[in-house]
């Protein structure tokens, strides 16, 4: 959905735009504005800054404890000397995750959100100036562990990576459709435990994802044994190459689910915002 082209006007709400011409004291204003417009504007500014330095930025989302930081540690070790990486860590409290990343010699900034359950574009904007963006290839943003809220906030990143560990239920994509629909790739993590977790079916997890009309690849990885790391890194390199091609044409990337919305609704300029109408019933 966008608020720019009038696509928000549907058969269900068109009546809100009609004025009855009377001079009632109460005025109804049709707005049809995105509720998170402020966040989305900041996200767009973040994306422009990242694009000016060509830094592919990936938002990692999952439940708490599904192995986001372990995946990052294994990824950093595997890419040492090949790609320049930095990490933004989001947690309610502690610097523990950032410390784990820094121990590997990689720049990491911790955002502690206090009680907030997600990162937003403004929190990320405060950290970006502290990073040496001109010396980076890839920025990972490890979002707060939560399968609900982070999916609603654009941070200005280019890709969403959603982890589902095999210690969780394989029907999670069906239970949390908003989160899993947003994934550009779904990583099944901790696959070394599959031998003792017979109840988890990777096929069922993938079927639940496909039911959400998602074409995202499903990659099985174990940060512990290294299984699937080549496939995950192959995907990462392929997306980085694609991003660089886009940048050469002065274009950018957005998570697939956001691009889909933009394609559906076009990018025309607003005509209908703040169009005043009179209230239909008398007060």
């Amino acid at each position: 959905m966008c608020d720019t082209c009038g696509c928000n006007i549907t058969e269900g709400n068109r009546h809100l735009l009609r004025a009855d011409g009377s001079h009632a004291k109460v005025t109804a204003v049709s707005v049809l504005n995105k509720l998170l417009q402020h966040n989305d504007d900041q996200a767009q500014a973040n994306r422009a800054l990242l694009d000016s330095h060509g830094v592919l930025t990936i938002n990692l989302m999952s439940s708490p404890g599904s192995g986001k930081t372990s995946l990052l540690e294994a990824t950093i070790k595997a890419l040492k000397g090949a790609l320049r990486i930095a990490v933004i860590e989001g947690d309610l409290e502690t610097e523990n995750d950032a410390a784990r990343i820094r121990a590997l010699g990689v720049e990491a900034h911790q955002i502690t959100t206090g009680t907030a359950c997600h990162l937003d574009a403004h929190l990320v904007a405060k950290v970006l100036p502290q990073l040496e963006l001109e010396h980076l290839d890839v920025l990972f943003i490890e979002n707060v562990g939560n399968l609900v809220c982070p999916a609603s906030f654009d941070l200005g990143h280019h890709l969403n990576l959603t982890l589902l560990s095999v210690t969780e239920g394989d029907d999670k994509p069906a239970k949390y459709p908003v989160m899993f629909r947003a994934a550009d790739a779904m990583l099944l993590s901790k696959t070394d435990l599959l031998t003792v977790l017979e109840e988890f079916s990777p096929e069922r997890a993938e079927a639940c994802l496909r039911n959400l009309a998602s074409k995202a690849p499903v990659i099985r990885v174990s940060a512990k044994t290294g299984e699937g790391m080549q496939e995950w890194l192959g995907w990462l390199y392929q997306r980085l190459e694609h991003y660089r091609e886009m940048r050469r044409e002065n274009l950018s990337l957005r998570p697939a689910v956001q691009s889909e919305g933009r394609k559906l609704h076009g990018l025309a300029q607003p005509e209908l915002r703040f169009k005043p109408v009179s209230k239909l019933e008398t007060v």
Binding site: M1, N8, A28, L32, N33, L35, S152
Partner: peptide, 9 residues
């Protein structure tokens, strides 16, 4: 959708 549709003032 997550839209502010109308405000009555």
């Amino acid at each position: 959708e997550m839209i502010l549709a109308r405000v009555e003032l």
